[in-house]
């Protein structure tokens, strides 16, 4: 019984990070890399993956040392941990993924100031055990990657008629440059957020219908 409880709990933590509390869609955190780097699906994907790695590492370490760090200095300590992890990711990409590093180069150091990561360290990893923190980091990180991939894909498709560098809309498609430029990121994000809210409304309505049905059945 206890094990299924724990399972459910983990699943909840994951979906909470991936969807209900998604760093981009629900919290609107980490806008700097989101808007700067998502000019194509591929850039968005790799940036999301780099962020995911840092997030997993920082949640892991913060939850491991949470008992030893005095409250007064927890923020500087977390920043040191996150900044070190980002540097590790940056050096690793530079060494073994040189071409992607040259594209993302400017934005990788900015992962340090992605408030989604410090936010998770502060709000979750500093209060929960290692396993839960890992699940939370995976959910949050994958949710962030998904958001970057989605926005990058939409902007690449509308701005260049391509997806992952492959021509999708044909040679006659008039590239809408606006979507490649920063304002296009805001516009596309606005429409995506509207879509996410619509999905959430539908989910909520479905849940209510199920609830009233369950009540009616119980009454009869």
């Amino acid at each position: 019984m206890a094990s299924t409880d724990a399972m459910l709990n983990k699943q909840e933590i994951f979906t909470d990070g991936f969807w209900h509390n998604n760093a981009i869609f629900a919290q609107l955190l980490g806008m700097c890399p989101l808007l700067g780097v998502t000019t194509s699906a591929e850039n968005g994907f790799w940036m999301g993956l780099a962020t995911l790695l840092v997030l997993v590492g920082s949640n892991l370490i913060v939850s491991l040392v949470r008992g030893f760090i005095p409250d007064e200095v927890r923020i500087p300590a977390y920043i040191v941990i996150i900044a070190s992890l980002v540097t590790v990711v940056e050096l690793t990409m530079n060494a073994w993924m040189h071409e992607m590093y040259l594209i993302l180069g400017l934005f990788i150091p900015l992962i340090v100031v992605n408030c989604a990561i410090l936010g998770r360290a502060e709000a979750f990893a500093s209060k929960n055990n290692v396993m839960d923190s890992l699940v939370d980091a995976l959910g949050m990180g994958l949710g962030f990657t998904f958001a970057l991939l989605l926005l990058g894909g939409v902007r690449e498709l509308l701005g260049q008629g391509e997806l992952f560098g492959f021509d999708i809309l044909g040679a006659n498609y008039p590239d809408v440059l606006l979507f490649i430029l920063p304002p296009g990121a805001f516009i596309a994000l606005g429409f995506i957020l509207a879509g996410v809210n619509l999905v959430n409304l539908k989910l909520k309505a479905k849940k209510e219908v199920e609830l009233t049905q369950a009540k009616a059945e119980a009454a009869s």
Binding site: V65, I69, V80, S84
Partner: peptide, 13 residues
């Protein structure tokens, strides 16, 4: 604590 955190981070880097 801060000293130890910085030391560990620096040596890892």
């Amino acid at each position: 604590t801060l000293f130890v955190v910085a030391l560990v981070a620096a040596s890892m880097l």
